[in-house]
């Protein structure tokens, strides 16, 4: 038993964390990306890094509103968690309790959209993937979708 506990990988605790719950209203796309940008600004990110983060968060939140809660427009909540780890690693989670995605692989395909009439570009996941270091999408039909994004900033924690 001792051997097992010794070999168990230690999960580092975040040095700072923000949790945000917003109503699934389109006006909150700006509120969400602005709040996340303000929170991570303590790391003194470059303008480019900050723009990447804002854009990725905006995409994830828009997906919750346009797709996750499409059957209940104006209702539902978006849960955003931002964790800052050692070495300026950011982990951002955006979750909804909406309709879920039946085929994640298809949804992640660039230019794929279920809403062509709404002038959606189908580039949401492609942007999140391109503007972060790692993107994970977890979803269950009828239960909701969780988008996890990771990005390591070029700054150090000495500045926090």
């Amino acid at each position: 038993m001792k051997e097992r506990s010794k070999s168990r990988k230690t999960i580092a605790a975040p040095v700072n964390e923000m949790r945000l719950i917003l109503p699934a209203k389109s006006v909150n796309e700006k509120a969400a990306r602005s709040a996340v940008a303000a929170f991570v600004s303590v790391l003194d990110p470059t303008l480019s890094e900050l723009s990447d983060i804002k854009c990725a968060v905006s995409e994830a939140v828009t997906n919750c509103i346009v797709h996750g809660y499409r059957d209940t427009p104006g209702k539902g909540e978006i849960y955003i968690t931002v964790r800052i780890f050692e070495d300026s690693l950011l982990k951002i989670t955006v979750r909804d309790r909406g309709c879920g995605i039946a085929n994640i692989e298809e949804a992640r395909t660039p230019l794929f959209t279920t809403d062509p009439e709404g002038e959606r570009s189908g580039m949401g996941f492609a942007v999140m993937e391109s503007f972060t270091d790692r993107l994970t999408v977890l979803s269950k039909v009828g239960r909701g979708t969780t988008v996890k994004m990771e990005k390591r900033l070029g700054t150090t924690l000495d500045r926090v």
Binding site: S51, C55, E59, T62, G118, E119, R120, S121, G124, V127
Partner: peptide, 13 residues
Amino acid sequence: TFMDSSGLGLIMG
């Protein structure tokens, strides 16, 4: 000052 993929849809539209 900011644009996400919704802007791509807007431009293409």
